[in-house]
Nucleic acid binder design. Structure first.
Length: 277
DNA sequence: ATGACCGGTCGTACCGGA
C-alpha cells in the first residue's frame, strides 16, 4: 500500500498539480492539509475521476484536512474527541463583543482505509511562544495524544501523518540559530512529539532525494527552496505493525518545483502487505 | 535551471503562514 501526506496550501489553487501528481504517483491513500475549503467545496468529483473517494473536513478560509483513498473510506471522524478550540482573542476583537460558540478548527480527520486507520493532521502554527496560539498548540497536542492512544487501542495498523508544525530535532531545520526563540523548535513542542512516540508511534523518516536533509517545507520567499533552506515538519507517524513493514519512504521534491507549487512537498511511504508472502 | 512569496478575502491592502 502506498500512502502519502501533503500540505497543499489550498486544494483549489493546487488542483491541477494535485491531479497530475495523483496520476503520476498513484498513491492508495493521501492525507491532505490546508485544503482551505469547506467539505462541500472540495473537488471530490475531480479526484473521483482518478478513482479516489474523499473524506473532507473544512471550515472555509483556513485550515482544512482531507483523506483520499482508492482502497475504501470507512468510519470517518471529523476531528477527534477532546479536540480543543482556539479560545484566544482574535486580532482586533474587543472584550465587549458577543460571546461566540467555540468550535474546533478543521485540523484532523480520521478514516479507515484498506484496513489501516489513517489520520490527516494539521497542527496549529503557534505563531510565537508567548502567544495564546502557542498555548493552544500545546493543548491541541495533549488532546491528540489522548485521542491517538484510544485509536491505537482499536488494534488496527495506524498512521497519523500531516503537517505537525514541529521540527523534531535541530537537524530538521536548515539553520537552528535562526529559530532560537521561535516556535516549531521549542522543548515543549518537541516533548509533545516525544509523548506521541511514547504511545508506540514511530517517526518514519523519509529519504531526502537530494542533499542530506529530508526537508518537507521551504518558504516561498528569498529562494529558500533553491538554497535548501527548509524544515522537516510534515511527519509520518505509524504504529509498530505498520512502521515495521515500510519498504520505502521519500520526500517528493519534484512536487515543490516549477510554477505554482505548494510550499510543502509530499511525503510518500510504501508499506508491504500484512501477513506471510 | 528547482530560479528568488502565495492564497485568501465583501480585497484592490492586509492577514496568516512557519
Amino acid at each position: 500500500m502506498r500512502l502519502a501526506t501533503w500540505n497543499v496550501n489550498s486544494v483549489k489553487a493546487r488542483l491541477p498539480r494535485l491531479l497530475s501528481w495523483l496520476a503520476e504517483t498513484a498513491p492508495d491513500v493521501v492525507c491532505l492539509q490546508e485544503t482551505k475549503c469547506r467539505a462541500d467545496q472540495f473537488p471530490a468529483a475531480e479526484v473521483a475521476e482518478l478513482g479516489y473517494a474523499t473524506a473532507a473536513h473544512g471550515d472555509g478560509r483556513w485550515n482544512g484536512v482531507a483523506v483520499l483513498s482508492r482502497v475504501g473510506i470507512e468510519d470517518v471522524s471529523n476531528g477527534f474527541p477532546g479536540e480543543p478550540a482556539y479560545e484566544g482573542e482574535a486580532e482586533g476583537q474587543t472584550k465587549l463583543t458577543e460571546p461566540v460558540l467555540l468550535v474546533p478548527e478543521a485540523r484532523a480527520i480520521g478514516a479507515t482505509c484498506g484496513g489501516v486507520r489513517v489520520w490527516s493532521l494539521y497542527a496549529p502554527n503557534g505563531r510565537t511562544p508567548d502567544s495564546a496560539h502557542y498555548a493552544y498548540k500545546l493543548e491541541w497536542f495533549r488532546a491528540l495524544r489522548d485521542a491517538l492512544g484510544a485509536e491505537l487501542a482499536r488494534g488496527l495498523p495506524l498512521v497519523a501523518c500531516g503537517d505537525y508544525n514541529v521540527a523534531p530535532t535541530d537537524e530538521d531545520v536548515w539553520d537552528p540559530s535562526v529559530f532560537v526563540g521561535s516556535t516549531h523548535v521549542t522543548p515543549a513542542e518537541r516533548q509533545a512529539l516525544t509523548e506521541l512516540r511514547d504511545l508506540g508511534l514511530h517517526d518514519v523518516v523519509p529519504a531526502a532525494m537530494k542533499g542530506p536533509h529530508p526537508y518537507t517545507y521551504w518558504d516561498y520567499r528569498a529562494g529558500a527552496f533553491h538554497k535548501d533552506m527548509g524544515m522537516r515538519i510534515d511527519l509520518f507517524y505509524a504504529s509498530e505493525d505498520c512502521a515495521s513493514r515500510v519498504s520505502s519512504a521519500y520526500v517528493d521534491r519534484e512536487a515543490r518545483k516549477g510554477k505554482g507549487p505548494s510550499d510543502h512537498a509530499p511525503v510518500v511511504v510504501d508499506v508491504d502487505a500484512e501477513g506471510p508472502g
